[in-house]
Amino acid sequence: MNVKLLLSLAFGISVIAQASAQDDLLKQLDTVKPKEKQVEIAGFKGLQICNMQSTKVASKGEWYILISHRFGDLTQGLDNFFGLDDAYTKLGAIYGATNWLSIGVSRQTNNKIYELTAKYKIKSQETDGFPVSIVGYNTMDINTNLSTDIYPDLEFYNRLGYSTQLLISRKFSTKFSAEIAPIYIHKNLYDASTENENQFAVGMGGRYKLTKRLSVNLEYAPRINAPENTVYHDLLSLGLDIETGGHIFQLVFSNCQTMNDVYVFSNATGKWNGGSIFFGFNLYRVF
């Protein structure tokens, strides 16, 4: 009888111990969650580096109002009052349709060009995963300044120009981010003596954070297939980002005065070594 009692007690204790161990194991499984990959943020604070686009994309529901200004040639001094007499202005708006897609429209005084844009996030840099951010960017220009008095056979499609860009960036540290961007430009109307219908460039840019609200930016975009007799130059710009709450204010020095992407990468008229330099700014206000 004692033996049966002891066996019954032993069996009960065993069952209780196993149940307790299973409960502990289930609790451990409940507390272990799949490791979520952390997306790296703030590689660039502005939507642009200087003239080039950065890999920052407007978030869903955000509205950005853009005001850009480029003064005339600084090297002419008082002849054009250090560029004030020959300024270009660009006004635009950008809307975050989703967290990965934004669309925009702008108009600039040079050639009365309207620019339609689409910017879309393909992949984000991850802290312990994917090493870079990849963003696509497309623009379409409409040159409304062209006249049938000069071009009697002018058609609407002659007014159009396009750019396609693949923006690839990496945030290397809390202070430094860099970007490279293969760029394709197509113009339906162009000067065959100085440029090509289809043009290619490789944009390179970087941002170095100086303080919590200040960063210095640099960009360069050499053209790959520019004609030997071209009168234009490779884009080279230097800028300073100033963060002021809901504003991103960018001061820009560049050898290009125009602000639409088709002209920026194919029609820079200035040179840093003894040529024209243009000062201006980009102002973004987010709502």
Rank of each mutant, 00 (worst) to 15 (best):
Y114K: 04
A178Y: 12
G274F: 08
N260E: 08
R170C: 10
T258W: 05
S124D: 09
D85L: 03
S266W: 04
V135M: 06
K212F: 05
N51W: 09
N145K: 14
G92Q: 09
A19L: 05
M140H: 05
K212P: 03
A87T: 07
L236H: 02
E197C: 11
Q250W: 06
T244K: 15
N225K: 00
I248G: 01
T174P: 15
P227F: 05
A97S: 09
P182Y: 08
L189Q: 07
L218F: 12
C256A: 09
Y208T: 06
Y64H: 15
E155Y: 10
I94S: 14
L160Q: 02
Y114P: 14
S133R: 09
C50T: 14
P222A: 11
T31R: 13
F176I: 12
L91N: 07
P222I: 07
R207K: 08
E179Q: 15
D86L: 04
R170N: 14
L218N: 03
G275T: 00
Q22G: 04
S173I: 04
V231C: 06
G246L: 10
F278T: 03
Y151L: 14
T174S: 14
T258G: 00
L7M: 11
Y284I: 08
N145M: 13
S106Y: 01
S106T: 03
V135T: 12
Q250P: 08
E219M: 04
L7I: 05
G274T: 02
I248K: 14
E40D: 07
D149F: 06
S54P: 08
N143K: 08
Q76H: 10
D24K: 09
V264M: 03
R107T: 08
K171R: 13
Y95H: 01
F287D: 07
G239P: 11
Y95P: 01
M1L: 11
D141A: 07
D79W: 01
L84M: 15
G136C: 05
